[in-house]
Design a protein around this nucleic acid. Structure first.
Lengths: 142, 142
DNA sequence: CCCTTTACTTATCAAATGACAAGTAAAGGG
DNA sequence: CCCTTTACTTGTCATTTGATAAGTAAAGGG
């Protein structure tokens, strides 16, 4: 198969994913958060509990900057740090109750936009979409 | 079908796409560019010719800021503006020769990472991947 | 115990980005 | 022609983000 053609589809597709997710997450974040802070909360929400190092690596930001942003989020009472019992150098980060509430509200708004978008799809379509999501997640975006 | 479950897959998938594309585009941009400038060039490369307003809308940045970044890119000789003949208020933006060269090098590095990634996929897999990309692009990420 | 490594923190500085006010010049409608 | 709108520019300022140096405290190996 022509891998260059497939690459072009991959690029166009990835670009479409970025545009759509930008669109859908627009205006869902509280005014009190900077973009980076929202991204971090989103990551914590999906992957908690996570360590600072994991956040740092995944967000491509340095440990000092990660530490600073996390301190700000803690000060805003949106997340909590707790030292690992096994290795007390590690800090496990989780959303606080307030953080959970905020993120669950954000996700609900995103979900309703998502549901609007697939509303006109048939049951058949939905099956295909689910299958395609699974397949690409396994074979390309793992 | 359970749309909430589908939404969760959508979130996990989108997050995986973001992580992978971050990973693959890491270190491909020239030192001389800021992240935003690289993103703009990428967008121009894929969609040229584009107007300033289109860039502004798609990148979610204000016209003044878009104008400023575009001036910087022009000064770096990476893109060129030309007034529309029909409507001389509009500026069509394209990559310059240097800009094309830079972006084509960047895309080649991304492509080789992409090819590495799908190298172990069978001909059958590739067909499925292509089909899934097309399907999701049409039905979800349009 | 000491030494090194790991995980994270604090402080500081420069650069990038975002937001806004005020402008120009062309288009288009009455 | 005038007035309004559109597309873009210029200038300025505050905030966010990135980068780096220098720390602390726990873990772990010899």
């Amino acid at each position: 198969m022509d891998k260059n053609a497939l690459f072009k589809k991959f690029v166009a597709f990835s670009s479409a994913v970025h545009q759509l997710t930008n669109e859908m997450t627009k205006d869902v974040k509280s005014e009190a958060l900077t973009p980076v802070q929202y991204k971090i909360l989103e990551y914590i929400a999906i992957s908690q509990p996570v360590t600072l190092s994991e956040i740092s690596e995944c967000m491509h930001m340095s440990m000092p900057n990660t530490s600073r942003e996390l301190r700000k989020l803690s000060e805003k009472q949106l997340c909590e740090k707790a030292a690992d019992i096994e290795d007390r150098r590690k800090q496990f980060v989780r959303l606080s109750m307030q953080g959970e509430a905020m993120m669950s509200e954000a996700f609900q708004r995103i979900e309703s936009r998502f549901v609007d978008r697939i509303n006109n799809a048939s049951e058949e379509d939905l099956k295909e979409i689910e299958h395609a999501l699974d397949l690409l997640h396994r074979k390309v975006f793992y």
